Each structure stands twice: as structure tokens, then as C-alpha cells.
Amino acid sequence: MTQEWTQYLSKAGAQFENNTVIHFGQLDEERQQALHGDVITDLSHFGLIKVTGSDAKTFLQGQFTNDVRQVTAKLSQLSALCSPKGRILFSFRLFKRDDAYYLLLPRESVESMLKRLRMYVLRADAKLEEVSESLSRIGVAGANSTQRLTDCLGFAPPIDVDASLTENQVTVLRILGTQPRYLVFGETLQNLWECVTQTAHPAGAAVWQLLDILAGVPQIVPATAEEFVPQMVNYQVIGGVSFKKGCYTGQEIVARMQYLGKLKRRLYLAKIDTATVPQPGAALYVATGEQSVGKIVNAAVHPDGGVVVLAVIQISRAEADEIHWQSQQGECLQLIDLPYSLLEYN
């Protein structure tokens, strides 16, 4: 986050904690607006990695779960970097802007991902650098967000999920959501923020996390790195993995799970009646066993009370037993239908 952008948001009422906007003074109202209105969110808690060079596409293609060849100025994608055992180390969104590839991922994961990727560059003409301070990034969501962005940008944002568009040095990505949601990137976004906030409510990072969870989109953080293969977090359903692209790190394990194995765990959306937000990686249990049957992936406070979570749970247990957080006698998870089809599991 640049100093100029920080100062601008501070004047707009932003409250910061560890360089993250936690709220704009009305957290409860921000959460309500996320469900029933339009919100705009600073996304500086996500970092950016830029990849350039004549071998950038080929290099990234050999590392990521998705088909990098499909990423263009008009199409972004969810993707992941796996360990040789096929477990997700980092999840991110990949997009293209000015002939360079950009990875959007949690800020706390940027340094370790750069280190991991640089291990494999070798002689490839591929330059990797953190550019979190170079591009501002905001999220806009809500029923009226498409029209509001059209009015404020002077051009219509992309309509289809994963579509991308860059005009006047501003890049807009449509992403999965229960209502229209957009990621916006630009060197300076103050004018856009001022325009959108005429009708949209500014909100903190936790509100964007809430919208990701309700959309069924998981975010792998350091606490859950190497815990899940892509199919466990529904990546084959939400467009985060390609089974036709060829080799990449961990590909053999991921493909074997898809074609020869039986998926025993998957991602669930659930609500817990608690005032305490579970941490990523927290264990889940059934009342009759001491062994964990799942883990929390992400969690956020829900405006109607309690918290909502994305959790990877043993399918057989989720279908037959009550799932408890923290212990065999802990709070129960109330499973909720995800906003996308899971027919692929049948």
C-alpha cells in the first residue's frame, strides 16, 4: 500500500491494523451492506507478483494447476501452486495486463511464493517481482455494482465471470459471487473510489472475506498450506484446475485423484453459532471419534449472527454426522448449500 493511498483512505475514515483496512468506523453496517447493498473495499491485504519475460508463459505453465495459455487481456483465472505431492501451497488469481502476468494472493504469502517460484526459473527468461506498492487494488460488489462502475469508469466492466478488461490503464476483473463482484487495479484509484462511494458503502477486509466465503471461493493461507489437493477445495468446480494442460508440479497426484481415485473430502459452506472467529486450519470432529474429520479453511462474522466458514470435511462424515468445531463437544456446523453445482461429485 503506497503512502499516498494510505493517507487517502485514512482521510476517508479507514481504520488500519497491520497495514490492513479493518473497517471504516461502522463494521456492523458494512457487513449488512455486503449482503443487502453495494460495497467497495480496499484490497491492499492482498499482494501482487508480476511476471515478465519471453519465457513467462511457458515457465508459469509448468508450475500452476490451471492452463496459463488461456490467460489473456480478456480472461483471468483462479489457479494454484502445488507441492510435488499435489497439495496446494498457494492459491491466487492470475491475470494479464500490459503483456505481463500478475498474481493476486494474500500479502503474507507473497515472499514465500516468490522464493518458491524462483527455485524453478533456472535459465528461463522470466522475471518475478513483487509490485504490491505499484498498483492499487479495490473490490466492488453488489446488485448495482456493474452500473456504478460503468458510470464511474466511463466504460462497461466485463459481464462474464473470470472475464478481464483494461481501459485507460485500469484493469477490471469479474469474479465469482452471489451478486456481481469485481476486482479493479490501477496506479491511482482515488477518483474511482470517490465516485463509487457516492452510492456504495466503503468496507474493510473482513467484508471481502465474507463475500469470498459466501461465494464458495477458498483462500489458502500459510496455516493451511500443503493441507489439500485442489479437488478438496472444489477447484475443479470453480475453474481453478485444468486436467488437459499437461505437466506441472504435483500434476500426477491431482490427475490420479480425478480419474482413478475417489474423493473423500470436499469443501463445505457452513454456519457456526459463535462469537469467536475460527482460525484457518482449526480441526473439526464428530462426537464419536477423537480423530479430526476436517479443517476450517476460511471464516468470517455473518451480519445475522454467528460466523460462516468454508471447511474441508470428510464427505461420509458430513453426510451422516454432526460436525463439531474445536472438540467432540464443540459448536456444531450447520451446513449450507454452496452457490454452485457439485454435480461433478456424483
Rank of each mutant, 00 (worst) to 15 (best):
N298Q: 09
E319R: 11
S76K: 10
M113I: 08
A163N: 01
A225R: 07
Q209K: 13
R116T: 11
I220P: 01
R137A: 04
I159A: 03
Q70W: 07
K11A: 10
S327G: 11
L343F: 09
E30Q: 10
S10N: 08
L176G: 02
V241G: 09
E17V: 04
D162S: 12
L103D: 00
H201E: 11
D67E: 15
A205G: 04
R256A: 12
T197Y: 04
T146M: 05
F90Y: 15
T188W: 01
G306I: 10
T72V: 09
Q32W: 08
A56T: 11
C332Q: 15
S54K: 15
V233N: 06
F24C: 00
A34F: 00
P202R: 00
D337M: 07
R123I: 08
Y101T: 08
E129W: 02
F92G: 00
R97C: 03
I253G: 10
P278C: 02
R87D: 01
P157E: 14
Q7Y: 14
T41V: 13
R31T: 01
L263N: 12
D321M: 04
N346Y: 12
F59I: 03
V312E: 04
C195W: 07
L189F: 07
D273L: 10
V196E: 06
K85M: 12
L338W: 01
R148P: 01
D99N: 15
L105C: 06
G240E: 09
L269E: 07
Q26E: 15
K50C: 03
S76A: 15
V196G: 02
E17Q: 08
F16N: 04
R174A: 05
G261A: 10
P303E: 08
T150Q: 15
Y345D: 15
K11R: 11
L260I: 12
T288K: 10
Y345V: 03
L189G: 03
F64T: 10
D151L: 14
Q63G: 03
R266S: 07
I220L: 06
L165Y: 15
H324C: 04
Y235H: 11
Q314I: 04
P202I: 05
H23N: 15
V207A: 01
D28Y: 00
D99H: 15
Y285R: 08
L122V: 14
P303R: 08
S91R: 10
E187A: 02
G62K: 11
A156Y: 05
V140D: 00
D28G: 00
Q7I: 10
L43E: 05
W5M: 02
F243A: 03
C247Q: 07
M1C: 02
Y102Q: 02
V207C: 05
G250L: 05
G139K: 03
P106H: 01
D160F: 08
E129A: 07
T197C: 09
L263F: 09
G47Y: 06
I315H: 00
D42P: 11
Q61I: 10
L48M: 09
L335N: 06
T188R: 06
V312I: 03
P106K: 06
K85I: 05
K264E: 14
R265S: 11
S164C: 14
P180S: 05
V172P: 06
V71T: 13
Q3E: 14
E29H: 12
D160V: 13
Q32M: 06
T72C: 08
T188H: 07
A126D: 00
